[in-house]
Structure formats: C-alpha cells, structure tokens
C-alpha cells in the first residue's frame, strides 16, 4: 500500500508538470502583467516599466522564465517552486504570494470540506431512499430536485439564499445567519460555544449553496448504484439467507453501493472548487476565491500559476485518497 502510494505520487508529478507547462504558456500568451501600468495616463517613464519588467523577470524568454519559476536558479531569491518561492507579484513588491495563498487556503478548505461532507451524507441518504422507493412520488420529487439543482447557476442561488437569510433574520429579529463575511475575525477570542454558534451563523448558507450541485449529481449516482446492487444476486442471496430487510440494506446493499461513490466524489472536487470561488464572491469571504479574482484582475501571472498549481495538487490528492479508500473498501482491489 505504501509502495503504491509512493508510485501514485511519483506518477502524478509528470502530469502536474505537463499541466504547469500548459497553463504557464497560456497565462503568458493571454495577458501582459504590466498592461495596466503601460496604459496609465500620463504614460509612465520607460525606466519605471523597465524596472518592473526586471522585477517580474519579463525581460527573459518564456522557456527561461518557466525554468526559473520551477528552479529559482538565477533569480532574485523570490522565485523557484523547488525553493518554496512562488515568484514576485504585480500587486506590490512586498506581497508574498505563498503566504497569502496558504493563509486563505484554510478559509476555503473549511467551506469545501463542509460542503463535501454534507453533500456526501445527504446524497447517500437521498440516493438510497430514492432507490428503495423506486418510481414513488418521493423518488420523482428527489429526481426533479436533482435536475433543478444541476441546472442552477451557483452564484444566482447564492444570491437568493443571501436574500432568504436576510429575510429570515428580519423575521425573527435576530442575526441568526450572517450573510456577509467568513467569520474568521468574529471567531477570535470566543469560547467553544461561541465558536460553534459563530460557525453556524457564517457557514450554513454558503455550505448549502456549495453542496447543492454536488449533492444533486451524487445522489443521482448513488441511486443508480444502489438500484444496481439491490437487483444483484448477492443481495438476493442475503435475503434468501433469511436476513431481515434492514440488515440486507445496511450490511449488503449500502456497503457495496458506497464504493463507486468514492471515485465520483474525488472527481467532483474540481467542480466544488469552482463553486467555492463563486460562493465566496457572493458571501464576500476572504478565501482563495478573492485571492484568485484579485490575481486575475491585476494580471498577476505568478499568483495565478500558484493558484492553479495548488488546485491541481488538491484534485490529485483527492483522487489519490479516493483510490486508497477504494482499495480499503473493496477487497478485490489489491495494491501490490
């Protein structure tokens, strides 16, 4: 298992490298980090531009710059992934990309994690209930909710939920739901109970928004997988043994029907990260989404690259965890 994990990690490196080349080139050709500066009125002094070009290594060719970005050899000590440096930022000379990125990672992972856990839990529940009551009113209702959720633009739904939160607060006359901000600041210095209520206030609405799409697609998937298992020979044999229905469902059907969901959930994390950016934007969280938007707006190439690399690593990590989990759940898979 350890050998397998190491092999998988090693195998991911070339893919990650290839992806970094692709994105590096695309980011490079699609925009100019100094575009805003060059378009300033009145035009800045050429020496200012030259200084900035040197600071951002724009005076070197693209392959050189890529090499520099990876290794940091020949740079000013602020660049080079292998040295743990993500490169200079256009936003200011003192802006540390790595520091900011990891500062915000925690905020976003909190949201992504909560959404994943709740989406998975509810999806399993809805999928199982749907499958067991196939063609019932409940099944049709859940199916329709699924379709609706899959067609829902996340940011629009976020706006609606925000309005609903505000409305609810007005109705009960107290701030049950916070509709703006991520609550990091408010949680400081609170005792445990205070932190819990604070987390509930700030996280409930964004989590509902973010989990919606994943919940929909996973519950559909779980329903199919559950139906397949319910019609399987081994579930029939379990019944024939004389096990009561609830034992059959729990021990035989659910246990096996859960296995394929691990892979699906891992693939789905990319979509959740997408959704998190939109959700954070609406609820004005200071997470990776804000970092990303600022980086794009400022043509901050190195910050963007750092961001994309990080999301790539997250996706690969999720897939690796899913594979390992699959191996634990399904004895047919053996990692030699």
């Amino acid at each position: 298992m350890l050998v397998y994990t190491v092999r998988r990690v090693l195998g991911a490196i070339p893919i990650l490298l290839l992806a970094s080349v692709l994105t590096f080139v695309l980011i490079d050709v699609s925009g100019d980090p100094l575009a805003d500066l060059r378009m300033q009125q009145p035009p800045p002094d050429p020496s200012v531009i030259q200084l900035q070009e040197e600071r951002l290594y724009l005076d070197r060719s693209m392959p050189e710059r890529y090499w520099l970005w990876i290794t940091g050899i020949g740079g000013n000590g602020d660049i080079g992934l292998l040295q743990g440096k993500f490169g200079p930022s256009t936003q200011s000379a003192t802006y540390d990309i790595g520091e900011n990125l990891f500062l915000r990672l925690g905020t976003t992972l909190r949201l992504v994690g909560a959404a994943m856990v709740f989406a998975l839990g509810l999806a399993v529940l809805a999928g199982v209930v749907s499958a067991m009551r196939q063609y019932s009113k409940l099944d049709y209702t859940l199916t329709f909710i699924g379709f609706l959720a899959l067609a829902m633009p996340v940011f629009w739904f976020a706006g609606i939920m925000q309005q609903a939160g505000v409305g609810f607060n007005e109705l009960v006359g107290s701030q049950v739901f916070a509709t703006i901000g991520d609550g990091t600041y408010q949680a400081q210095g609170q005792d445990l109970w205070g932190r819990i209520t604070n987390a509930f206030a700030y996280m409930t609405l964004p989590t509902i928004v973010l989990m919606l799409t994943s919940f929909a697609s996973w519950s559909r998937y779980q329903r199919t997988s559950m139906l397949e298992v319910l019609n399987s020979d081994y579930v029939r044999l379990a019944r024939a043994k004389g096990l009561p229905n609830r034992v059959v469902i729990r021990r035989h059907a659910l246990r096996t029907a859960l296995i394929p969901l691990t892979t699906v959930a891992a693939v789905g994390i990319a979509g959740i990260i997408d959704g998190a950016i939109l959700t954070e934007r609406v609820f004005q969280w200071r997470g990776l989404g804000e970092f990303f938007i600022a980086a794009v707006e400022k043509n901050d190439s190195y910050a963007l690259m750092a961001w994309l690399l990080l999301s790539g690593v997250l996706v690969i990590l999720a897939n690796l965890i899913a594979d390992l989990l699959y191996g634990v759940l399904d004895p047919r898979i053996r990692y030699e």
């Binding site: 020979d233 081994y234 029939r236 044999l237 024939a240 004389g242 246990r255 399904d330 047919r332």
Partner: peptide
C-alpha cells in the same frame, strides 16, 4: 411480511442461485 418471511427463508427453505460469480457479496 418481511419480518415473518425472514424467519422462514434460510431456516426452513433455502435457495441456490445460478451464477456463483455474482451470488456472493464481493466485500
């Protein structure tokens, strides 16, 4: 009912199915 027939199945009357490759739970 399910509870009633569960007491009979596997105890008084048992069944063997066609395809041994799918009759046993893989996990």
């Amino acid at each position: 009912t399910d509870a009633q027939i569960s007491k009979v199945r596997g105890d008084k009357i048992a069944m063997i199915f066609q395809d041994p490759l799918t009759s046993l739970n893989p996990v």
